[in-house]
Each structure stands twice: as structure tokens, then as C-alpha cells.
Design a protein around this nucleic acid. Structure first.
Length: 880
DNA sequence: GCGAGCCA
DNA sequence: TGGCTCGC
């Protein structure tokens, strides 16, 4: 429906944010305690409106707190309406900031409601021959519908809505929009506390208005009105009806300016908008930002000369060109596949202010040769992928000078996303949206798209690199970046490339056994339940346990009974079925994740090539995915058998595992300088037993295994930042006892207490904490106003230096091990937080053990010795 | 405490 | 999307 008239969209700001707020089931809250779901929902709606209607003008009307003329007429007006919760009220000023940054007009006026402003603007707009679209959650505005004025009423939250113009309104109600006020005068409105005529409801009112149109007309012809009851009610409430009408009538003559040019839609101020979105943690909006050319700082980005190898420059000349001392930028466009050798599409090299693009696989081989021979330093964004690809071409040593993804991570490890697109938008205000995004090589001119993309990517990477280098230096992060993170990239790529052989027939057999036991359990559970049902569904399991079998429900969730392991564990002895369900759960998890999940991940070479990610965790640890090799079961019997499926390449190899003994507690001893802790480690004591002995004042040889395990839980609590609440449920004691336990612990470890307090104090002052290598983690939660959030922040502040420093140490050790193994047959396969797994050639066994012990124990000099336990085995299960 | 992955 | 469970 094309229309030459200009369109003005008028939004009822209060109404819409209110709808948005209540439409969102879960609260959205930023790390520093700002509620955002109202704004979020509002902006989603706004985006949709812009997209669907492409308005020429836009204005958002707000209510002002001051009383309006309606309150003066009728004190009870809007009384009894539930007060806006402070979590929502605080969002309105921020919403206004966002709208301001978007350059969307706003209007509010003392003494008038948003409705009146909307009514007035729409009237003036109609007079100026514009089309109007009113967006609100309030049906009152329907009275404004006209031939050129649409009213869009949100419904069921904000995703659905009804759109009325005059015609649609008449069709639905049977009378003119303007008479909606007469209808309301009769039937009243609870939400606004408009009384209406008692005894006349929606049906009666509609019928009367269809017949008489206005209440004036009704009273004019009151004698005709039927039935008698209705007439009596009307006659008894004459003044109420007219007052109600006055209250319901939108004032369309508010004294406002009528120059709408200031409401004309123009581009947002993206710099401001980005700042606010970052503050509100609206990452999805950030990513979607479509920054126009003239505002995008793209223009500030350099554009480079592009040369296509084989077309603009010969391969030989290209290779000569990149043989300088300067580091070169490298991008490889490939699928980086972990299931087979990666499929290489193209590559781009940035050198001498020129982007060289190549599509020829043989050129890549020569490129690898050249980088290897001349020891050319490379840089890029997420260059692990490039290294991974090149490793398939050639076994070589890489010299990495910079990686913008890793730098972004070191600068802000808790950021959720370090992709080039996001960082370009956040740091440079540059949109990297490309016309042919995601369609490289499928449509359009393949050559041209690679060239454009590479050119833009290098412009962004180069610019980011400049900024990041400064920031790394200013924030004293160069040590962790250069000594740990950069050299680690090649190690990670290598672990991905090498992979871990999976004994598929072993695993299948194990899977069959799981399935057999699963079938037995299923049958028995059905028997005990007296019916067949889906055991995996908490919705079905809940009623069976807690209603049919009469077990006592301990907890409830939103929909039904909680059936988590913690709950079931408590009623384990109450019914035979419960332990079976627990076992069934574990078994299905095992077969789903570790049997059926693992088998399809075996690559063509019979090995599993997991991905290792260096930019995910907030503490500095690395993570693993596809599959996650860091959570393969170990604690319990059937699960740990999975480890038996991970085997060396062939009979010439064995596995060697090397794990740090109590690294986190040793780090704590070192960082806090706690004499008792240091002494225990130096004497080589069982640390949990020693802790129990100190805290309880009992000689070590009298510590029971229960006491030892309690102390172990406390030590864990210290490492993982557990709360007294967490500790109490872990130990099955009351919160009070847990608090007592913790305070006893601190009494005997005063330096640890002081260390913890200092971390919190430092974090409150600086907003971050640091690890041994100077790695930082910003913790916004530390200054949150909400108690729970602040508590969390304090635990993070205490716990991150310990976990993060341990992560630092292991990273240094990995780099040492990897470099020491260079040129040998033995390869580093995995890192599981405090242990390394090496596939070891039997003839290198002694040497590998020596390398591991030396590299790991001397990775860093601490106040306590770093102790490494070595194990050798024919499969991963053997390494215990 | 942090992360990954499966299932409904 | 959230509940659940695995690891450290």
C-alpha cells in the first residue's frame, strides 16, 4: 500500500515501556545492577515499527509526574492503579537517553498526559495532511482513529498487536471511534478508575452507543431508552456519566508547537548509542547496528591497494615482497574443519600497505615455506585458525606478533564476544556488515568479495592493533599477553591438529552396556510407577513421584516440582524408585553426551580434534568444545570407563599424564604468604588433613575421614569462591555451622583472611583484580547495590586471583612443554586445567617425563614448591 | 565459582 | 530457553 502522504509515528512512551517490562518474564539486569528489560522490549518494538512502517517522523510522548487536569476534576482519577515499580521507573530516564542518542523526538508537558499530547499531535498532523500511526498499549487512544490515523494497540506483551484505523474500528465496534469516549463514559474503566454508569457493562454500553452515538443524544432521548432498568440506571447517574466522559476524553488542543520538522527521522548518533548499549549490555543490538557510511568511521579507516596474486602480481614477486622484517597480517579463508583436512578457499596477506590476495592452494604452500624460512612474524584476528590450517600444510614454528582477538580478551576477559565485527563496532564505531556476508564464493564476484573483505578486515585489524597495543601497555598487560597468551596460540592450534585417538569399538561396546542397563532401569521404573512415562521429563516425573507415589516435594519450580539430583538425593531412602531414577539420569547423560555425542566427532583420521578456546573464560582458563574434553567423567565408576576409549595412536605410544598437585591451594599459600599453609606444603603434608587438624585443634593422626572431607570442602570453597550457603549444602550442615566453619578456618589462617579482604578492597577501589602474571578481570558486581550481586562480586574478587594465577602457571608450563617436545614424536594432546596429557612415543618416555616434570615444576617460582604427579598408561583411564 | 552440552 | 550434569 503505497501512499504519497508522509507518515508520523507517535508512541506512548510510558505505556509501551510498561508493556515491555511486564511482557518479559525474566528480569534483565546488568552486572552493575541496572534493570533493563523495559528498555530492551521497547527498543525491540521500535525496531520493528521502523522496519514495518518506515516512518518519516517519529515522536515519543511521556507522562509527567505532576497531576493533570483530570486529577483536578476527579481526585480518584487513576487511583488504585498499581504504582510503577522502582525497577521500571529507573529505566525511563535511560530510555530517554537512548531515544536522544537515536535522535528521536520526545515530548512531555506538565498537566497533560501522554494521551493528550498524542491526540494533539495527531490532530495537527492530520491538518497538515499527514498519515498518523499511534503506538500504545492503552485502548483509550482508539478514540483517535481516523481515515488517516491508525492506532496500534499492543496485545499479549508486545510482540502481537491490533491495528485500527477508522474503518477497522467501525467494523469491530459498530460505531465511530470518537464515540469510544461515550462508550467508556457508560461502562467505565477500572484501570483509570473512571466510574461509568453502575450496572452498565461493555455489552450494554456498546449497544446504546451503536444506537445513539453519544451520551448527549442518549439523555436527549432518554424516554425512548429500553429496557426500563437501563433507563433508570442512566437517569440516576447523569452527572457520573458526563464526568466520566470528560475524564475519558483526550484533549486534542494542548498548546504545543506544531512544527514537526524536529521529529523528522534522521540517523542516530552512533557514538552515543554504542556507549549506552555497551553500558546496558545490549550486545544483540550492538551487533545489529547498521552504521551509515557518513557516520561510520570507515572513512577514517585506510583503504589499501589490493593485488591479486597471479593477476596483478606474480607469485614470485609476491613472495619477495613479503620477505621483510615487518610482521605481516594473515587471513586464511577456509572452513578450518576439524573432521577432515581443512578446505582452503583463499588467503590474504597484509604487507607494505598492500593487501595480497591468493586463491591458489600451491601459493599457500609456498607462503608457508616462506614464512617458515624467513621466520616472518604474523598477526591477525583469531590467528589460531590460520596456524591450524598451515599446520596441515607444513610442520613449522610460528612467530606471532599480535592477535587482536587475544588482545581483546586480555583487555576484557569477561566480554561475551571478541569477534572482529563486535570489536570493530565497539572500539572503532565501524560496521563490518558486508553485502555478501556469509555468501563468499557462492554468489556475485568471488574475487571481488574476498578482496573487499580482506581489505576491510585488515583496515579494522590494523586500527584495532594500534589502539590495543597502547592499552595493553598502559594497563600493564603486556607480560601476560606476550609471555603467556601469544605463545600459547600455536600450542592450542597444535592440540587441535594432533587430536586424540578414540577406540570406537570399545566405546560402542560400552554404549551397548549402558543401553542394556538403561533398559533394565526403565522397565523397573515403569513397574514401580505403575505406568509408562517419560522419565527424562521433569513435567511427567514430578507428578508421579510427588502425587502418585506420595513422596514429599521438597521444592517447586515455576512449572511443577523440582526433580533435580539435590532434591531426589534427599528422598532417596523413601522409595525404591528414586535411586533408580538417579542412576537412569546419569546413564542417559553418559550415553547421550559421551557415547552418542562423541562417536560422530571422530574425524577421518580416527581421532577427535576438539576445539580449544583461549578467549572464553573470565578467569583466564582455557575451555574446550566440540567435544568438551575437559569434562569427560572421572569421579564415578560407569562414567570414568569412557576414558578407556581414549588411547594412543598405536602400540608404539603410551599416554603420560602430568597433574599439578593442589595448584590452587599452593597459589593461595604463595599469594597470601600464609605461614601455616606454606609450612604444610613444604613438609609435604596431606593438605586437607593438615587443614582439618589446624582448624579443629586435633592432632593429624586423629582426624577422621569425615573431618578430612569437611576440610576438603572448605578448601574447595576457598578455591571456587563458594558462599556459606554453598558450603552448607555441600556439607549438609546449617548455614550457621558453615559460617562458623569458615570463621574458624580464617582464625587459623589469618594471612589468607587478610589476602581475601585485600582482594575485595582492591577490587572496590580499582574495579578489577589481578593474577600473578598481571592478568586482570573487571568485576562490576563489586559495587552493585543489590546485596546478593555484591556478595557474588566479592567472591569473584577473592577467587579469580587464585584460579587465574593457576591458569597463568599452567599456560606457561604448556608453552615450555610444547617447545621442549618440538621435533619429537611425542605430542601434547590435552590440558585439563591442572593436568597435561601427552601421547608419548615409548622410546621417548623417560625424556618426556623429564620434560614434563621440569617444565611444569619450574614454570614459575613460588613460595611453595610446585609438585607434579606423573602417570603412564595404555589409555586415559589408566592415568590415575 | 566457571564452562560445555544434551534434552524437552 | 532452562534444567540438569559433567569437569576443574
Amino acid at each position: 500500500m503505497k501512499n504519497s502522504k508522509e507518515l508520523i509515528v507517535i508512541i506512548d512512551g510510558n505505556s509501551l515501556i510498561n508493556r515491555a517490562y511486564y511482557a518479559m518474564q525474566r528480569p534483565m539486569i546488568t552486572k552493575d545492577g541496572m534493570y533493563t528489560q523495559g528498555i530492551y522490549g521497547f527498543l525491540n518494538m521500535l525496531e520493528k515499527i521502523k522496519k514495518d512502517y518506515d516512518p518519516d517522523y517519529m515522536v515519543v510522548a511521556f507522562d509527567v509526574k505532576a497531576p493533570t487536569f483530570r486529577h483536578k476534576q476527579y481526585e480518584e482519577y487513576k487511583a488504585g492503579r498499581r504504582k510503577m515499580p522502582p525497577e521500571l521507573a529507573m529505566q525511563i530516564p535511560v530510555l530517554k537517553e537512548v531515544l536522544d542518542a537515536m535522535n528521536i523526538g520526545m515530548i512531555e508537558m506538565e498537566g497533560f498526559e501522554a494521551d493528550d499530547l498524542i491526540g494533539t499531535i495527531s490532530k495537527r498532523a492530520e491538518e497538515q495532511d499527514k498519515r498518523v500511526l499511534i503506538i500504545t498499549g492503552d485502548k483509550d487512544a482508539l478514540q483517535l482513529a481516523g481515515d488517516n490515523t491508525g492506532v496500534l494497540i499492543t496485545r499479549k506483551g508486545i510482540s502481537q498487536f491490533d491495528l485500527y484505523d477508522r474503518k477497522a474500528f467501525v467494523e469491530k465496534y459498530g460505531f465511530e471511534p470518537i464515540n469510544f469516549i461515550d462508550c467508556k463514559a457508560l461502562m467505565g474503566d477500572q484501570s483509570d478508575n473512571i466510574p461509568g454508569v453502575p450496572g452498565i457493562g461493555e455489552k450494554g454500553a456498546t449497544k446504546l452507543i451503536c444506537q445513539y452515538a453519544t451520551i448527549e443524544e442518549i439523555y436527549e432521548k432518554i424516554d425512548e431508552v429500553e429496557p426500563n432498568g437501563t433507563r433508570t440506571k442512566l437517569m440516576d447517574n447523569y452527572s457520573i456519566a458526563f464526568m466520566s466522559k470528560r475524564l475519558a476524553t483526550i484533549n486534542r488542543n494542548v498548546p504545543i508547537e506544531t512544527d514537526f520538522e524536529k521529529y523528522r527521522c534522521v540517523e542516530a548518533d552512533y557514538a552515543k548509542l554504542i556507549e549506552i548499549y555497551k553500558r546496558l549490555e545490549f550486545n544483540s543490538f550492538l551487533k545489529r547496528l547498521d552504521i551509515p557510511q557518513e557516520q561510520s568511521k570507515n572513512q577514517e579507516l585506510e583503504t589499501y591497494k589490493v593485488k591479486v596474486i597471479g593477476r596483478d602480481i606474480s607469485e614470485d614477486d609476491f613472495l619477495k615482497e613479503i620477505t621483510g622484517k615487518e610482521p605481516v597480517g594473515l587471513r586464511i579463508y577456509s572452513d578450518h574443519s576439524h573432521m577432515k583436512a581443512p578446505e582452503l578457499d583463499a588467503f590474504a596477506i597484509f604487507a607494505g600497505n598492500t593487501v595480497f590476495c591468493g586463491h591458489d592452494f600451491s601459493a599457500l604452500v609456498k607462503l608457508a615455506d616462506r614464512i617458515d624460512e624467513t621466520k616472518t612474524y604474523i598477526y591477525g584476528h583469531g590467528i589460531k585458525n590460520e596456524i591450524y590450517d598451515l599446520m596441515h600444510i607444513k610442520d613449522m614454528k610460528f612467530f606471532v606478533s599480535f592477535d587482536t582477538e587475544i588482545a581483546g580478551y586480555v583487555l576484557e576477559p569477561s566480554a561475551s564476544d571478541h569477534s572482529l565485527e563486535t570489536m570493530a563496532a565497539e572500539e572503532l564505531g565501524v560496521s563490518m556488515k558486508q553485502e555478501n556476508e556469509g555468501q563468499i564464493g557462492m554468489f556475485e564476484d568471488f574475487e571481488e568479495s574476498i578482496e573487499d573483505m580482506a581489505s576491510l578486515e585488515f583496515a579494522v585489524i590494523n586500527r584495532l592493533m594500534e589502539i590495543q597495543k597502547e592499552r595493553l601497555k598502559a594497563e600493564e598487560l603486556t607480560e601476560v599477553f606476550e609471555d603467556a597468551e601469544l605463545p600459547l596460540i600455536e600450542v592450542m592450534a597444535s592440540m587441535e591438529k594432533v587430536g586424540f585417538t578414540l577406540d570406537q569399538s570399545y566405546l560402542k561396546k560400552l554404549g551397548d552396556e549402558f543401553a542394556k542397563r538403561e533398559a533394565e532401569l526403565t522397565e523397573r521404573i515403569y513397574q514401580l510407577a505403575g505406568e509408562e512415562f517419560n522419565i527424562k521429563s521433569p513435567a511427567q516425573l514430578g507428578p508421579i513421584l510427588f502425587e502418585k507415589l506420595g513422596l514429599k516435594p521438597a521444592k517447586k519450580t515455576k512449572r511443577g516440582y523440582a526433580t533435580g539430583a539435590e532434591v531426589l538425593e534427599k528422598v532417596k531412602d523413601k522409595h525404591e524408585i528414586v535411586p533408580l531414577i538417579l542412576e537412569y539420569r546419569k546413564l542417559t547423560k553418559l550415553s547421550g553426551t559421551y557415547v552418542d555425542g562423541l562417536l560422530p566427532m571422530v574425524a577421518e583420521d580416527g581421532r577427535i580434534h576438539a576445539a580449544f578456546n583461549q578467549t572464553v573464560t573470565a578467569t583466564g582458563r582455557i575451555s574446550s568444545s566440540s567435544p568438551n574434553m575437559q569434562n569427560i567423567p572421572i569421579r564415578e565408576e560407569p562414567g570414568r570407563l569412557i576414558r578407556g576409549a581414549f588411547v594412543p595412536a598405536n602400540e608404539n605410544y603410551v599416554l603420560v599424564g602430568a597433574d599439578y598437585s593442589q595448584i590452587e591451594l599452593r597459589v593461595l599459600a604463595h599469594m597470601s604468604g600464609d605461614e601455616a599453609l606454606i609450612d604444610s606444603f613444604n613438609r609435604g603434608l596431606d593438605i586437607h588433613r593438615a587443614t582439618a587438624s589446624r582448624v579443629m585443634g586435633i592432632p593429624e593422626d586423629e582426624i577422621t575421614s569425615q573431618q578430612r572431607s569437611d576440610a576438603k570442602a572448605v578448601n574447595f570453597g576457598v578455591i571456587y569462591g563458594m558462599s556459606s550457603f554453598g558450603l552448607s549444602s555441600e556439607l549438609g550442615i546449617t548455614r550457621k555451622d558453615a559460617e562458623k566453619y569458615i570463621s574458624d578456618y580464617f582464625e587459623k589462617h589469618i594471612a589468607v583472611k587478610e589476602f581475601m579482604d585485600e582482594q575485595v578492597r582492591y577490587c572496590k577501589e580499582h574495579g578489577y583484580v589481578k593474577t600473578i602474571l598481571g592478568r586482570k578481570r573487571h568485576i562490576k558486581e563489586i559495587n552493585a547495590s543489590a546485596y546478593m550481586v555484591r556478595q557474588l562480586g566479592e567472591r569473584l574478587a577473592m577467587n579469580t586471583p587464585i584460579q587465574g594465577s593457576a591458569a597463568d602457571i599452567i599456560k606457561l608450563a604448556m608453552i615450555r612443554v610444547y617447545n621442549a617436545l618440538r621435533g619429537m614424536k611425542s605430542k601434547l594432546l590435552l590440558q585439563v586445567h591442572d593436568e597435561l596429557i601427552i601421547e608419548t612415543s615409548r622410546d621417548e618416555l623417560d625424556q618426556v617425563k623429564e620434560i614434563l616434570r621440569d617444565s611444569m615444576e619450574n614454570a614459575m617460582k613460588l613460595a611453595v614448591k610446585l609438585v607434579v604427579d606423573l602417570n603412564t598408561g595404555e589409555n586415559w583411564l589408566d592415568l590415575k
